[in-house]
Design a protein around this nucleic acid. Structure first.
Lengths: 347, 347
DNA sequence: CTGTTAGCGCCTTCAT
DNA sequence: ATGAAGGCGCTAACAG
């Protein structure tokens, strides 16, 4: 059984001839530009529909042929996941330059709303598109809106600011991610009674707050037997996270599950192993990095919730490109999924 | 801190001028065509390197501008996962035609080596690229090799034939997928003693065999307390799977875990619920479909191992396109990941 | 071995 | 409101 999908080899010219108009007119109709009589529009549109005509993408790009500049505003510091995204952007170098796209990475302190906002203000006019790992704060929101007003296409990355007028968010649903972590911890703990600990970077980060929300929601709704301890904040730093985890484990000998919401996973793991409780406490965290990979393989971590940094980098670039060219976004393709990674499906 | 990635706006012409040669010569060097003095090659290459020059992809495509025809050979029948891949190909229609690519879907009986092989033979010369859900059998292998010899680019999809000279495999590592299923069943069963059941489509399908191998490997290595029952074969059919599962559950009241390797999930689930043992037996299967989605939400299934059909369809097309144009394949992007899907991270 | 030249299909002024 | 014409940057056929 055969079933053919799409095979046009028409050109603008063919459509023009068939509609009895010139190339320019077809082009106008195709892009909804003014200056064509309604009746002509209809005739042209019909011809286009009839053949399911699509302009040749390469020809269009060549003719338009302007280079675009994109900026990626990312957190400075040792966050492995952010480094992975940057590395993935590097991998795209030749893909980018073959399409006359340039991307520059701008690192800044994303924990400070003022610094982030002023970094964004500096971008005005210099870029066609901006991707930013955002902090949800009024100053940042205003800066994002200003960027949009200045004509830039703006995409939030990993952490969203839903109330800003950004054009798109590339990242996961963090509430669902937290729920997933909660379900995993609950199910893997099984019937053992005990307490659950949560270590986060900061509850002021929207993504962290959302994950915590989803996590506690599932645990209290479905695993009522488990008591959830108050969240401790490690600022995504290894040392601080280690210290806090150590204290936590000391104070609560009956911890059976631990959820690390942000980075600093190495510190948490160290505290667990130093206390000799690794492998006995269900430990779930985020993002596949060199660190978490090793911890999964050693059995210290049980599962990692992850978003694919390569996919995220490519999706952000593709979305910015589509936005600046006025093309549709393939939302199915650009949607970032919540991956559960355990030892045997490590990528 | 700033860090710029790639921003060329050189053209072939600029390189030509700088190297003191003509356009054509640069083009020859760029594509490794013969007929250029070694010394000239060096000079040109230097100029290219110096500016990290990449030819404008759109211009190249336009100039080469031939349409390509691809065929997708897929199993006939009610397999939901395969239907999803076909649907995704449909979604790409306008993307495809904007690039002068056509794909036709050819459905056939993939359970019969002879029919599949003869279907493949019929494709000779008619297509630039062929993607096929393959069956690992000598007749099929030979047919694939013949296709390659006839000049077509060949990609195996979902199920591989590693010994054939296909150019690429788009799909998951099925042994790892089976291991992942095994780890999930083992961990979710927890400390309960009992037996583990396996329902497959057919052990002659390479992907099923590999999954079973990985599954039993993990269970016996790490969850020694669980006894694995002999595999039963439901031929991916709901009714047969239901019947077999029913008998299995009757014969073994102490089944605590069940792994459905292929399709026919609706049947297995029906047997479980009819026996009143849904939710009490850990049930893991494959692929997110309307059926498995509902079963996850209802708590009948605990987890689904899945490969993203949209990604698979797009990857197959992109790989065929790259192959027919002699471009490099972005292996990181085209790699299909093993997803674990539970209720809270349903896509 | 190397250079010249005519498109590829579309977009964009500039005329009409 | 519509049409004509000149590129965009690269490839390929043809000269030299």
């Amino acid at each position: 059984m055969k079933d053919a999908l799409s095979q046009t080899s028409m050109t603008l010219r063919d459509i023009a001839r068939e509609a009895g108009v010139s190339l320019a007119t077809v082009d106008r109709v195709l892009h909804g530009r003014p200056g064509v009589r309604p009746d002509t529009v209809r005739r042209v549109k019909e011809a286009i529909e009839r053949h399911a005509f699509r302009p040749h993408a390469a020809a269009a790009e060549l003719a338009r042929g302007r280079a675009r500049r994109f900026a990626f505003v990312m957190p400075a510091g040792p966050n492995l996941f952010m480094q992975q995204i940057q590395a993935q952007l590097g991998e795209m170098a030749s893909w980018l330059s073959a399409r006359r796209l340039s991307v520059e990475t701008i690192t800044t302190d994303v924990f400070s709303p003022e610094i982030l906002a002023s970094t964004l203000e500096r971008l005005h006019g210099a870029f066609d598109g901006v991707a930013v790992v955002a902090l949800d704060h009024p100053a940042v929101r205003a800066a994002l809106d200003d960027l949009v007003d200045a004509g830039a296409k703006v995409v939030t990355l990993v952490s969203d600011v839903p109330t800003a007028r950004r054009h798109h968010y590339v990242g996961i649903d963090n509430i669902a991610a937290g729920r997933t972590a909660g379900a995993l911890v609950g199910r893997l703990v099984g019937t053992r009674p005990g307490k659950i600990a949560i270590v986060a970077g900061s509850q002021n980060l929207r993504d962290h707050a959302e994950r915590i929300f989803g996590f506690t929601q599932v645990l209290s709704a479905e695993f009522g037997g488990l008591e959830i301890l108050p969240v401790v904040e490690g600022r995504d730093e290894d040392e601080r996270s280690e210290h806090l985890t150590m204290r936590l484990l000391d104070a609560h000998p009956d911890v059976v599950g631990l959820y690390n919401v942000g980075a600093g996973t190495a510190g948490v793991a160290k505290a667990l192993t130093d206390a000799g409780r690794d492998g006995r406490i269900v430990f779930v965290g985020h993002d596949v990095t060199a660190v978490t990979r090793r911890l999964l393989l050693r059995g210290v971590m049980d599962a990692v919730i992850s978003q694919n940094p390569g996919h995220e980098a490519r999706a952000a670039v593709r979305v910015l490109r589509a936005l600046t060219r006025g093309e549709p976004i393939l939302s199915e393709q650009e949607k970032i999924r919540i991956d559960i990674v355990m030892r045997d499906n490590l990528p």
